[in-house]
Design a binder for these strands. Structure first.
Length: 459
RNA sequence: GUCCCCAUCGUCUAGCCUGGUUAGGACACUACCCUUUCACGGUAAGAACCGGGGUUCGAAUCCCCGUGGGGACGCCA
């Protein structure tokens, strides 16, 4: 058996979305699983809608997700060029083969592919016009996921536009032949196209590749498949929002595939080992952002400290760049920044929460939650507790969380109170809210002077 | 309208191929536990085999028909 060659063939006509990412991912996984070759081919035959911005977005998104390609733009390879806009000479050559075989004809300036079979005029109610139907033999698609699918292509179709540009069906098949693609893994929306493609492969006398039509991703709410316009559809959005690519990849793998049993969170190396086409589901999956968020949290939680801090900094930098608002976190001392991020890491569900969660560490001018203040100040004698803490501060050992905890417990013991009697009011004074890291670590990281100033401010 | 694909908790799914399970897990939701707040974590609860026929001693599992969902029907890709 020769080496597996798969390709991901996006067109740079729009933002890179979840569905494309998963198609790329499944191709990549299959290539890695089989030790095959993952080809990136840019299908930019629609000159009117192509853009360099979208092209670069394809490169960036794939790279961010970790889906490296073995052949393609930037990577090179023996079957290039890998942008269809640069392959016109190849299409001309293949068109000649079809012409020589008598499988084409011209009409209205366009070149049509001629099916084999008897022709008759039929009125198409859906399209409200008379079309020429061909009584052709059924095309057989041998699909690794769906089994044997039969579909009869019953109309000749355009392969070269009247402006001379070849169309998708033609270039897609020509390139798959020329690039020696062995497996075509693509969305189920292409299943109906496959009969056209199979007929073209046969007309060229080329072997038909093995197909695998993967289920579609449906939008979270409402009917239909997810499209670029839907909420949460764009890869770029997750990147901006600070999702970890490894979490997104893991989640995407599970949308339509699983290794059987209960495994969900898995390192990519293990997924590569387990992934195979017959394990891919046949039914469409609805996108669930909540589950993705949970997966992201799980990955965030286990990120090594250095990587978490670096990732957090990247996130803050990106935010600063895109919103152009002052970001106090970025001008903070690196060691101080690190301490705070490590306090936040086990607490947050996503990087998005980071700015709000840590804001009061980076500025003295933080908001105080009025409702929380009202509640905290109404219970017991909070001002007395603050005074006692302020009085104890000069002698307090700030060297560790446990030392601070002991010191506060000592203050409490003297009044025959507990740690809890100081916790809420101190937290309010230090952060203006009622949620956050442990109060002792807040003391330690903020430092004696800042703690004193903030405690006194509430008196 | 025609053709193609699909069908297990609200969602993602295991189980189906090779019929016999208290139909399992995860997300979400609820309760409790843990706890110095908030999270995390733990425990528990609720929650599904689309309907009908057939085959069979026995069907989520095999077959057929409905129904429902999705896709395709461009000189877009």
């Amino acid at each position: 058996m020769s080496q597996v060659r798969v390709r991901f063939a996006p067109s740079p006509t729009g933002f890179f979305h979840i569905g494309s990412a998963r198609t790329a991912l499944f191709n990549w996984l299959y290539a890695r699983h089989t030790g095959g070759v993952f080809v990136l081919r840019i299908e930019d035959t629609d000159q009117a809608r192509n853009s360099d911005e979208f092209l670069n977005l394809i490169y960036d998104s794939l790279s961010w997700l970790g889906l490296n390609w073995d052949e393609g733009p930037k990577a090179g390879g023996a079957f290039g060029p890998y942008r269809q806009s640069e392959r016109a000479h190849i299409y001309r050559e293949y068109l000649e083969k079809l012409k020589a075989a008598g499988r084409t004809y011209e009409k209205d300036g366009a070149v049509y592919f001629k099916l084999i079979g008897e022709r008759s005029e039929v009125f198409d109610e859906h399209r409200k016009k008379t079309v020429t139907k061909v009584a052709a033999a059924p095309s057989v698609i041998d699909d690794q996921i769906r089994g044997r699918v039969e579909r009869t292509e019953d109309e000749d179709f355009v392969i070269v536009r009247s402006d001379g540009n070849p169309v998708f069906h033609f270039v897609n098949v020509v390139d798959d032949i020329a690039m020696k693609i062995t497996h075509v893994i693509r969305g189920e929306d292409h299943l109906s196209n496959s009969s056209k493609h199979v007929e073209l492969f046969k007309a060229f006398g080329a072997p038909v590749p093995s197909y695998a039509h993967i289920p579609l991703i449906l939008k979270q709410n409402g009917p239909g498949k997810m499209s670029k316009r839907d909420q949460g559809a764009l890869i770029e959005e997750y990147r901006k929002r600070g999702f970890l690519p490894e979490a997104l990849v893991n989640f995407l793998c599970l949308l339509g595939w699983n290794p059987g049993g209960d495994r969900e969170k898995m390192p990519i190396a293990e997924i590569i080992q387990l992934f195979d086409l017959p394990g891919v589901n046949q039914s469409n999956a609805r996108f669930d952002e909540k589950k993705l968020a949970h997966m992201n949290m799980a990955y965030l939680l286990e990120l090594p400290a250095d990587r978490f801090v670096a990732t957090a900094r990247e996130y803050f930098e990106r935010q600063a760049r895109e919103s152009e608002l002052p970001k106090p976190a970025l001008v903070a001392d690196a060691a101080y920044f690190r301490e705070i991020m490590l306090l936040a890491q086990p607490k947050i569900k996503g990087l998005e929460e980071l700015p709000a969660y840590t804001a009061y560490f980076f500025t003295d001018d933080f908001a105080i939650d009025a409702k929380v203040k009202e509640k905290v100040m109404a219970k017991g004698d909070p001002k007395a507790r603050l005074n006692e803490l302020v009085a104890a501060l000069p002698a307090m050992d700030f060297s560790s969380d446990t030392a601070i905890e002991e010191a506060i417990k000592k203050v409490a013991a003297e009044k025959t109170l507990g740690f809890g009697d100081y916790q809420a009011v101190a937290r309010l004074a230090l952060s203006g809210t009622n949620a956050g890291p442990s109060i002792t670590s807040m003391f330690r990281v903020l430092g004696r002077e800042r703690v004193r100033a903030r405690l006194e401010r509430l008196l």
